[in-house]
Amino acid sequence: MNRKDVIDFIYNEADLLDRMQWQSWIELYHPDARYWMPLEWQQTDPVLQPSLMYEDLLLLKVRVERLAGERTFSQKPKSRCHHLLQAPQLTALDEAAGTASTRTSFIYTETRGDVLERFSGWASHDLVTVDGALRIKLKRIDLINFDAPFSNIQLFM
């Protein structure tokens, strides 16, 4: 595991989302992973401070399964998304331990029907190596306007 592997991993994760490969996407997550979208600036606590999302693998699986549900009416028509990533910055790298942290500036677009919404922010990843493969332990999404009243955000940033 080296610098390039980590950066490729980040790009690949976004690409799987853009191609709606939900199952392959979720397999990138560690069993103890969390997907976190804070609701406060430089938030430190996901449990006793409010968040937009703070979900474990079970809840991410619920979301992914729901997207394909026969009676998921908010996905008729289906949403699509697009990630435009700046080059990920490595904020930590321990090749021996197989761990890395990155911070990636992004513009995210989600569209459904005639509506298109655009979001800007930073994605932070904490990665670990399991059986020789990188896995996401924590993905944190900090939006620049985390406190604005959004309409539906149905996919993943």
């Binding site: 409010p50 009416f73 908010s74 009243p149 539906n152 955000i153 149905q154």
Partner: peptide, 21 residues
Amino acid sequence: LMYNRFINAPTSIVGHDDLEM
């Protein structure tokens, strides 16, 4: 807090169901 983000957030799947209606 958990209930609020599960049910009442723009990222809430229960919220998505309702808003669609």
